[in-house]
Design a protein around this nucleic acid. Structure first.
Lengths: 147, 147
DNA sequence: AGTGAAAGATCCTTCTT
DNA sequence: AAGAAGGATCTTTCACT
């Protein structure tokens, strides 16, 4: 899918997206224009979706993360989904197959805040909450190799 | 935690981390040096952990995502954790309280690949897998407001 | 696909206020 | 925190392989 060079480029950018074309070029052993062109295509193909910044939840005061499984009561699916989307403390939410409909990540400053947020869903869904104790793998990109 | 200006800066960078100081400056109504200093402090404080690139799993051929709950068999915790960490298709893994020990996200190209990966854990842990049907909330930052 | 050089644009930082 | 200015740095273009 990605050749060796593209892979290197993406890996470097994952580590620091401020890396200049010039630096990238010498890292992969190509010229700046070549790297520029490759980058253009990586974006065009959608491999690189965008340039962002990583924000640290703890530094913002969100000391606690929880993984919440949410099973809306009959007829409440849309209301629940809307509620989740409108609650900014949800930092991620997947709609999945199986008994639980949603799996979501919640950022909160305290157990009280967690309790408060869950209460707001309590009459519309069954929830099951697990507090995050550590992150063996923080969010990372899928493999770039075809391996 | 963050004043209005910092928040704007971070929001803009979340959208496009290539935004120049100059652009940031005029967006928030300050001078470049001021913004530069604010940025320095945001990084120093750890609010901005780094500059990255968002990579698209689908574009890399990983058409399927799954959320896997993993409960290691007695005595197998470390082996399982190591296995997870060394499997690049795991794009995220949290160690959580409760019955299931780990909750992880898996990127796979096919159901066969999913099956294969789960088989490798099968004799060391109980797993429960849910296929992701949609993402009501793709990964996003925690609230920047103190609200 | 890629190179190399060059031009032009842009940017970041420093300094003074 | 502003504003101006200096100097560095980058990105893109173009002709050619």
């Amino acid at each position: 899918m990605l050749d060796e060079t593209d892979r290197e480029i993406v890996e470097i950018l994952l580590r620091d997206s401020r890396t200049s074309l010039k630096e990238l070029a010498q890292a992969v052993g190509l010229s700046s224009p070549s790297v520029s062109e490759r980058l253009r295509r990586l974006e065009e193909r959608g491999v690189i979706r965008g340039f962002t910044v990583e924000v640290d939840a703890k530094a913002l005061g969100f000391a606690i993360q929880a993984i919440v499984r949410i099973k809306p009561l009959p007829g409440k699916l849309h209301v629940v989904q809307k509620l989740i989307e409108e609650t900014p403390q949800f930092g991620e939410c997947d709609k999945v197959t199986g008994d639980d409909c949603f799996v979501a990540r919640l950022y909160v400053r305290s157990i009280e805040e967690l309790d408060g947020l869950l209460d707001r869903i309590a009459d519309k869904a069954e929830t099951s909450t697990a507090i995050v104790k550590s992150q063996p793998i923080p969010r990372r990109a899928p493999p770039l190799q075809s391996s």
